[in-house]
């Protein structure tokens, strides 16, 4: 097994091409849920969880049902990719919500309110589509899913930490709230640009 390759994919998705700060995926929850540290961590965990399973299931759906080279009927159904992925993700989120509610009420308490929001989190659909576009195999796709979730959580938690402090700062009135959050995100993106010089592999 090629561990080096998996490491490159993981570092790439967490730092170099961070989903939020470099690829602009999942901006809505990034701005919306970063007001407090505890909800940022909850949201981050829920996203890691769903992204991992979504990467796995969407890859299987694409390869075994849609791709003419590998599916059972040899028919090109790749045009159904977008529609089938969003349905997979929507039903997956619903399913995960029900399972967690039944089996782990404590976890449901922590993640419950974030799960419905994840369906329209473009980072989840984004990672599913990217896995296919990059031609990853199943293991690479799953690693990429986990890493993308960690990258999202990292950016979200850092931002929440800053915004909790920012509440105490004297920000000019028109900049208060979302605008200053965007400017902070810009600063963080500058910091993350430093990782693009990182050569791994």
């Amino acid at each position: 097994m090629d561990w080096g390759n998996l490491f490159v994919i993981a570092v790439g998705s967490i730092l170099i091409n961070n989903f939020v700060l470099m690829r602009f995926l999942g901006i809505c929850p990034y701005i919306g849920v970063s007001k407090s540290l505890s909800s940022a961590i909850g949201m981050g965990m829920a996203v890691i969880f769903v992204m991992t399973i979504a990467s796995l299931v969407s890859w299987i759906v694409y390869v075994y049902l849609l791709d003419p080279a590998t599916n059972l009927w040899g028919v090109d159904l790749t045009f159904l990719r977008t529609i089938s992925f969003i349905l997979v993700i929507a039903s997956l989120v619903q399913f995960v919500e029900m399972v967690i509610q039944k089996t782990a009420p404590a976890l449901y308490q922590a993640l419950g309110i974030f799960l419905p929001l994840i369906t329209t989190n473009c980072a989840v659909l984004g990672v599913a589509v990217l896995n296919i576009d990059e031609g990853y195999n199943l293991l690479e796709a799953v690693v990429n899913g986990i890493a993308a979730g960690i990258g999202f959580t990292l950016a979200l938690v850092l931002m929440a930490g800053i915004r909790e402090r920012l509440d105490l700062a004297n920000v000019p009135k028109p900049l208060q709230g979302v605008p200053i959050a965007f400017i902070m995100a810009g600063m963080m993106a500058i910091a993350f640009l430093g990782f693009s010089g990182l050569s791994v592999g």
Partner: peptide
Amino acid sequence: APGAFITMGLLLA
């Protein structure tokens, strides 16, 4: 990426 975030923030402001 940073330019996008900062432009957006200033426009909103």
